[in-house]
């Protein structure tokens, strides 16, 4: 019995050792550049009207607005940072980051934020006026490079969604160009549209069900999963547009208004500031998310100082 036990333990250890060989983290491998043909500068008009909001489809009115067809790309964000640095709207250096009861210093791009009312509610984040981190300069997952003067995007990632950007950084981008971050209701309407099937709104931008080649999510087995492992990596914006890439056939997964990546790829910061809390909600799920978290009403949240390799954003602008 002891011998069998030892053999089984040994087999288990070998199995674990083989399975846990060096796994690339998402900063250490450069994927090929893939042109999806989707214009990252395009906007879509979302007409005014009611739509089914949330999991339980509460009909909600939203005014007319325009929204970016894709997430903001690394190339676009690098351009913004260069312009903001040149105009003095952003700076580079050490900046104090506060979250909950923690505070630390990080080197990165920062800019001024006027702060938010604080009510002393239980677990409420205090967002004071001052310089806020937009994006760190160091860390795994960064796709932008700073040479001391200019930001540039890594070649393979120019058309991938920008990540490692805080809510402050996303908000600053939109405001710099006279736009803003979408409210949650706006984001969800843009994602699912107004169609009701059997009295239910769409759970996914493209329809009622999800296939593996509809979106970039955990274990969706896209071409990048093969390179980066199950957790995967970002895909270029508009990747899931029905095209075939190196033998990998995608499904056209645009929303009813022609928006791409409204489910999967990266979480998207939204603009609502919830009183007594100040966490910011992120919509759409990401390449880290399970299928179920790609449903349009699901959200993640974090303090506005948070940044991560699976979080990006897109902007909206008012029509009038």
């Amino acid at each position: 019995m002891k011998r069998i036990l030892m053999m089984m333990t040994l087999l288990l250890l070998v199995f674990v050792a083989v399975s846990c060989g060096p796994t690339p983290n998402i900063g250490s491998i450069t994927p090929p550049y893939i042109d999806t043909g989707v214009d990252a500068e395009a906007w879509a008009l979302i007409p005014a009207g009611e739509f089914p909001f949330g999991q339980h489809d509460h009909m909600t009115m939203v005014d007319e607005f325009e929204i970016m067809v894709t997430d903001v790309t690394n190339e676009q964000y690098a351009r913004f940072l260069n312009e903001a640095l040149a105009s003095g709207a952003a700076g580079i250096g050490e900046v104090e980051v506060e979250a909950g009861e923690s505070a630390w210093t990080e080197r990165g791009v920062f800019g001024f934020y006027p702060g938010e009312p604080f009510d002393g509610f239980r677990h409420e984040e205090e967002i004071k006026a001052g310089d806020k981190l937009f994006m760190p300069l160091e860390g795994d997952g960064l796709r932008l490079v700073f040479d001391g003067k200019q930001f540039t995007s890594l070649d393979a990632y120019t058309n991938h969604p920008v990540t490692m950007v805080t809510w402050f950084g996303a908000n600053a981008f939109c405001q710099y160009y006279g736009w803003r971050l979408p409210l949650e209701a706006e984001w969800e309407k843009a994602a699912r549209g107004t169609e009701l099937v059997d009295d239910r709104g769409r759970p996914f931008p493209w329809g009622m069900e999800i296939e593996r080649n509809n979106a970039n999510y955990y274990s969706s087995f896209d071409v990048f999963v093969k390179m980066f492992g199950k957790l995967g990596n970002t895909t270029p914006v508009g990747f899931y547009n029905g095209k075939e890439y190196n033998g990998y056939q995608t499904l056209d997964s645009a929303s009813p208004y022609g928006l791409y990546d409204m489910a999967g790829n990266v979480f998207q910061w939204t603009g609502d500031d919830y009183p007594n809390q100040h966490y910011r909600h992120m919509r759409g799920g990401s390449f880290y998310s399970y299928q179920v978290d790609l449903r349009v009403w699901k959200y993640n949240s974090a303090g506005p100082q948070y940044y991560g390799p699976a979080v990006g954003f897109r902007c909206v602008r008012d029509v009038n």
Partner: peptide
Amino acid sequence: VAEAGQQSIVNWTMLLTDI
């Protein structure tokens, strides 16, 4: 681990859990 470097730990913890 940092968020960007969690792949390895996810792999082996999931494997041990499944086993």
